[in-house]
C-alpha cells in the first residue's frame, strides 16, 4: 500500500455517504444510551433511598443493558446471519463464564456456610 493520501477526502459514492451517516448516528446513539445507562445506577446509588436488593437489581439490569448497547453500537455485533459464527463465539464464552464463575460462587459460598462463616460478607 502506498501513501496515495494527498486528496483531502475520498469521493464517497451515494451508498457510502448514506452508510457513513448511518454509522455515525449509530455511534452517537450508542454514546447517548450508554450515558443514560451510566447515569441511572450512579444516581440511584447516590441519591435514591431504596432497599439494597432492588438497588443491586437495578444496577445489574443497567449494566447488562449497557453491555448489550456497547456490543451492538460500538462493536457492531448484530444478529445478522453472516455474523452468527462470531455471535456464537461470544455466547459460548458467556456459557463458559457462567459455568466457571457461577460454579465458583456456588462452591465457595456453600463452603463458607458450612465451614468458614467468617468469610460471608
Amino acid at each position: 500500500m502506498s501513501r496515495r493520501a494527498l486528496s483531502k477526502k475520498r469521493e464517497l459514492s451515494d451508498e457510502e455517504a448514506k452508510e457513513l451517516v448511518a454509522e455515525r448516528r449509530g455511534y452517537v446513539w450508542g454514546l447517548l444510551a450508554a450515558l443514560v445507562l451510566t447515569l441511572i445506577p450512579f444516581g440511584l446509588v447516590a441519591y435514591a433511598e431504596i432497599e439494597p436488593l432492588t438497588l443491586y437489581g437495578s444496577i445489574a439490569a443497567c449494566a447488562i443493558v449497557q453491555i448489550v448497547v456497547h456490543f451492538r453500537f460500538f462493536l457492531h455485533i448484530t444478529l445478522a446471519r453472516n455474523k452468527r459464527e462470531d455471535l456464537q463465539l461470544i455466547l459460548f464464552t458467556l456459557l463458559i463464564l457462567t459455568i466457571m464463575g457461577g460454579g465458583t460462587l456456588w462452591i465457595l459460598f456453600n463452603l463458607y456456610y458450612r465451614m468458614m462463616p467468617g468469610m460471608i460478607p
Partner: peptide
C-alpha cells in the same frame, strides 16, 4: 469437561448436593 472440576476436591467441605 468444563462442569466436573469439583471432583478433584470432593473432600473440601461442601455439602452433599454439590
Amino acid at each position: 469437561s468444563f462442569i466436573v472440576w469439583l471432583h478433584h476436591f470432593f473432600t473440601m467441605g461442601q455439602d452433599a448436593a454439590v
